[in-house]
Design a protein around this nucleic acid. Structure first.
Lengths: 215, 215
DNA sequence: GTTTGTTTTAAACATACGTTTAGGTCCAGT
DNA sequence: ACTGGACCTAAACGTATGTTTAAAACAAAC
């Protein structure tokens, strides 16, 4: 680790370890020893392990959501025509890549963390993320609604979560899948390529024919 | 709990708690006290917590995979025409429901566990599942390949994982989503309805136009 | 009724965890 | 040079975890 700042050193290591092993499975002792700082540093600088988790998310999620919101608002203000489904999904990708300065390693880690945020049942995390970033998400949903006006709202709701699932699930286990791809198909895969494949899949799913009433 | 058998009581409670909280977050003391058995019972009957986790998965995954394999083999043996993508996905659903005797509660729990199996980074679990049930999965992939013969193999590989992600992700956080749906849309959702919505989404995604070469 | 093997029990063990403490170090402001 | 505040450090605290032990309870076989 090259960063001399204790706080950033902790955040860097914690981010990587959380993404790799999960929150409960990563101890403060592992984080601090790997970061080369004292055990008590986490509690001193962040207050608790819980708040460290929040800080890790906030560090990349805040600039990401800010950038995304800016893009969405700009479009409305300038009176441009509505985005297509593809454009909206690509906007997510571009914004995420942009925020990480093209560093695909950290982008991948970020996606893994997002996956954990949903799948690890840490209620404090869901609350934190909802309160902090819920409004941007809702703004995005509004744009999706305009992109697929014929889709009943509840159908759209589900398909957004299906898409989210496909993305989060795939990218959060990206390293494993990359390995399988290498062994079984003798193919070398890139994160950018995977994401490029993801967009048409999700878009087609969003646009799929609405089945007969089921509930 | 009505079951007098210690082993089954443990499995029942462990299954529910693992699905609800995750593996690391669920202690043996919580499991055994809730099951009304002695703490040492887990180590006596299963050997270790790790092996208990395996046993929980094996209990429903083994009959599920056996039933699925039977269906797939029967089709080939009888020389029936190949399954469509939709039929294959629906077969998964039907088999899963069938194995749980229509008990949607346990079906839901089962899906949550599958989600955990992928997202919780317990390497022993992935190894266990791969060795034990990998062959059935590969057989299923073969059928999917026949259902979408124009799709390049690596493209199919990714789209299967996208679909898997959509399903696992959605169904593993099903209870949460159901709650949101109830609050925000004033809609009462069923597991069967969600699954019925999932199939066309995944099928459309599998069949989506192949993008230009990206890697 | 005794014996044999299985199952259950309460207690202890060793370890790992998050957190707190009290004292030290360092450096800018005066 | 001194002081105040921010930062760091080593050690300890209390608690929770998975696992093991040795004895007790039980049930079936003879």
């Amino acid at each position: 680790m090259s960063n001399p700042n204790t706080i950033d050193r902790i955040l860097d290591v914690a981010e990587a370890l959380f993404a790799e092993k999960g929150f409960t499975e990563t101890s403060l002792r592992t984080i601090t020893s790997k970061a080369g700082v004292n055990l008590a540093a986490v509690n001193y600088h962040f207050g608790s392990k819980t708040q460290l988790v929040h800080a890790v998310f906030a560090r990349t999620l805040t600039p990401f959501c800010d950038a995304l919101e800016k893009r969405l608002i700009a479009n409305v203000r300038d009176g441009d025509e509505a985005f297509s489904v593809e454009e909206l999904f690509e906007m997510l990708v571009e914004t995420a890549v942009e925020v990480h300065g093209g560093d695909t390693g950290r982008f991948s880690t970020f996606m893994q963390l997002l996956g954990l945020a949903y799948t690890q049942v840490q209620s404090h995390l869901r609350t934190f993320l909802g309160e902090r970033y819920g409004s941007v998400f809702q703004r995005f949903v509004v744009h999706l609604k305009m992109a697929a006006p014929d889709l009943p709202p509840q159908e759209l709701f589900w398909r957004i979560h299906f898409s989210l699932g496909a993305a989060v699930f795939t990218l959060s286990s990206y390293d494993t899948l990359k390995g399988i791809m290498n062994n079984d198909y003798n193919m070398n895969i890139t994160l950018a390529g995977t994401v490029k494949r993801l967009v048409p899949f999700m878009s087609a799913g969003i646009r799929a024919e609405v089945p007969a009433k089921v509930d």
